[in-house]
Computed example of a mutant assay.
Amino acid sequence: MSDPISADVAIIGAGPVGLFAVFECGMLKLSTVLIDALAEVGGQCAALYPEKPIYDIPAHPAIEAAILIENLERQIEPFTTPRLLGRIVTGIAGSAGDFTITTDHGDAIHAKTIIIAAGAGAFGPNRPPLDGLATFEATGAVQYYVKKREAFRNKRVVIAGGGDSAVDWAIALKDVAASVAVVHRRPKFRAAPEMADQLAQAAQRGEIDLVIPYQLHALHGTAGTLQTVEVADLDGKTRHLDADILLPFFGLAMDLGPIATWGLDLTHHHIAVTPSTLETSTRGIFAIGDVATYPGKLKLILQGFAEAAMAAHAIHPIVYPDTALHFEYSTSKGVPGS
């Protein structure tokens, strides 16, 4: 049990959006503390796909997730922010201006406001309903995340899914793997148009095999060693795809965990917020990033970054009720300590 920590803002979630919230709060002279259930900062970017290229970060045509986290870490260096990692928030008590947050490690954090940047909450993959799946998972023949591209060098890879992860990794692995096949139940992909175009072009060049319209049907191999992935079309016609590794990208199952018991208004396992401030139904508690929802919400990191700035500005009058906030651009005011 650590000594009590006091801060203007307690940020629950140390993924990219939570890290940027440290910067935005710091620019407004709001002290912060970071709390995260994982043992390191970075959220899904660090834990699940550090080498995944991200294409929609402004000024970065492509940037690996781990590098993005490193850059965000450098950006918040001027601000002294305690980090309570490997801790789950078990309770929140009090009201705006005087919250007490407790964790499973016995920590007590006193904060005037709270920002929840918990991403997908407690996340896990949506698994395909295939016989013998656990056996292939145990040997690594079926994987749900890509941490190192080199692990797939000269492997025959089958990717299942039609979203951003399936498309992005097909493109990223095509020059590393011995072969890449993408299984999807319809011709249209739910990915960024530019990346979908790149996938189509790679398929035309013979660099990627588009197996459409098919769905996963069965796995074949011995003692957890994958040999083929059987797929079936809507008429029941099947094909066998040679494979060493299957990557099913069917999204993450979201579980808010203890957040669901904090008395906040929820909409489909997300926290409902006021779009202009990102404040939840509880005064003084804000939510940003993937965990927050409102009409027109886009689940993009860049939108989460903007939400971090908006929440910080909405928090300022709560922390400093008698001080007017005179907005200045960072180009004119600089960064404290720089």
Rank of each mutant, 00 (worst) to 15 (best):
A120W: 01
A39M: 11
E194K: 13
R127G: 14
T274P: 00
A202S: 11
G86T: 07
L278D: 03
A21V: 02
F79K: 08
I54H: 06
G221H: 04
I285G: 12
G86C: 05
G13K: 02
I69D: 06
G18K: 01
A134Q: 10
F250L: 07
E70K: 14
A14Q: 01
Y145A: 14
V157R: 00
F136M: 13
V291R: 04
E70I: 05
T80F: 06
T100E: 14
A260M: 05
D235R: 01
V183G: 10
E194G: 07
P321A: 11
G161I: 01
D233H: 00
V17H: 01
A108P: 00
I171Y: 07
G221R: 00
A14M: 00
T80H: 14
S31K: 11
Y214M: 15
R185F: 11
I208E: 04
P78R: 08
F99P: 14
F152V: 06
A203K: 04
R190S: 13
H268S: 10
T293L: 07
D322K: 13
G337R: 08
Q303A: 07
V291A: 13
D131A: 14
L219F: 02
E40I: 02
L48G: 06
I245Q: 01
F152G: 05
L302S: 15
L252H: 01
A118T: 07
G162Q: 03
S165W: 03
A108G: 00
L264F: 13
D265H: 09
H270L: 02
E230T: 12
A117D: 01
F23N: 05
F286Y: 15
S95H: 10
F99Y: 15
T261E: 14
A59I: 12
A151P: 04
T80Y: 07
V335A: 07
D209G: 05
L30G: 08
G161P: 01
G161W: 02
A138D: 11
I109L: 01
D255A: 08
V291Y: 07
N71Y: 09
R239V: 03
T225N: 08
P317W: 11
A292T: 04
M195S: 10
A122Y: 14
I63C: 09
A191F: 05
D244F: 02
S330M: 10
C25W: 03
P128A: 07
E307N: 12
L266S: 03
T323M: 12
L256P: 03
P50D: 04
G140V: 15
I114E: 02
A47R: 06
R186Q: 15
